[in-house]
């Protein structure tokens, strides 16, 4: 008798727990956001960083089902997306892997990321000698959108094409035609392939304009290359607005999510150094959240804020 009662009580408890679990689970699935069904992959520091998970929660009100610590915009994050272990990944916005794998870069519609738009920095003296430099580089920047930059990176790092060849094709397709240049300038770059591609594009456009160009690429990191620009060893360098501003102001926190305001601030710091930042491009190289094509289609994702919408 006692055994039967105990068994009945046990069964009742079990039924209660099972029904509670299924109710709880069901409720979550129907009421949750899209993000609550997805896994985010990013570098281990992501949960603590304002430009990563912390910002996604604070600015966008997004909470993911799970965060998986992988690598900073590297192969493990990419494989996790391809394998389906994660649906959202943090990559750099100009990473060719985005195009190669058909990932969809979600629009940062609430401007979480600082404006690391590409911007040419030129020595004022070179600009005074050849005013055509400004027109030529502005025209290049006007054509450099995100798709263009990502494709240039892909041709070099994925397809294995030579930088001068890739730059030549892009310059020819752009139909740039400037003239009236004279004398010579030196174009530099850090040892980052993206900057070398841009440096080569600058060089070819300026050569078309009649200027003799010396190339000093792969010089090292910003700590080496920027002083070379200030001392006149090089005259032109492709930079990233927010990061370069925080470099020249020693991390004063003046960079913002607005590229125009960031470039204005950048120029305030550059004037005393005999340098000037020209027009910035639409293309950026900053943190970007990507999803696979399948995930984007399934949930209709275009912007990061779409992740906060209720799940279908």
């Amino acid at each position: 008798m006692r055994h039967i009662r105990t068994a009945a009580l046990g069964a009742a408890m079990l039924a209660l727990i099972v029904s509670a679990c299924s109710l709880g689970g069901g409720g979550q699935a129907s009421k949750g956001t899209i993000a609550s069904q997805l896994v985010l992959a990013g570098p281990p520091e992501c949960p603590e960083r304002p430009f990563c998970l912390k910002g996604l929660t604070g600015t966008y009100g997004i909470t993911f089902k799970e965060f998986k610590p992988t690598d900073p915009g590297g192969p493990i994050t990419i494989e996790a997306l391809k394998k389906g272990d994660a649906q959202v990944g943090l990559l750099f916005t100009s990473d060719p892997a985005i195009a190669v794998n058909g990932f969809v870069l979600l629009k940062d519609d609430k401007q979480l990321q600082l404006a690391d738009n590409l911007v040419p920095v030129v020595r004022q003296a070179a600009l005074d000698a050849n005013p055509v430099i400004e027109d030529a580089l502005n025209a290049v920047m006007a054509k450099l959108d995100q798709a263009a930059l990502t494709d240039l990176n892909k041709q070099v790092t994925v397809d294995g094409k030579a930088v001068p060849e890739v730059a030549k094709a892009w310059v020819e397709a752009g139909g740039f035609s400037f003239s009236g240049g004279s004398g010579s300038v030196t174009v530099g770059s850090t040892n980052f392939y993206e900057q070398e591609i841009l440096g080569e594009i600058f060089a070819q456009v300026l050569e078309q304009a009649g200027i003799t160009v010396e190339r000093k690429f792969q010089l090292g990191n910003r700590e080496i290359v920027f002083p070379a620009l200030e001392s006149g060893e090089i005259d032109i360098l492709a930079e990233y607005a927010a990061t370069a501003l925080e470099f020249v102001n020693a991390g004063a926190g003046e960079a913002s999510t607005d590229p125009a305001a960031t470039v204005v601030k950048f120029n305030e710091h550059l004037a005393s150094r005999g340098l000037v930042a020209l027009a910035f491009a639409a293309a950026t190289d900053q943190n970007g959240f990507v999803v696979t094509k399948a995930t984007a289609d399934k949930y209709g994702l275009v912007s990061i804020s779409d992740l906060a919408k209720p799940a279908p």
Binding site: P43, P44, E45, P69, T70, I76, A80, D85
Partner: peptide, 19 residues
């Protein structure tokens, strides 16, 4: 294992390095 989003004690080493 922590390098590929696994658990275990490596988590402290990998996360500590990143942070």
């Amino acid at each position: 294992a922590a390098l590929v989003a696994g658990g275990g004690l490596g988590r402290y080493i990998v996360d500590g390095f990143a942070l």
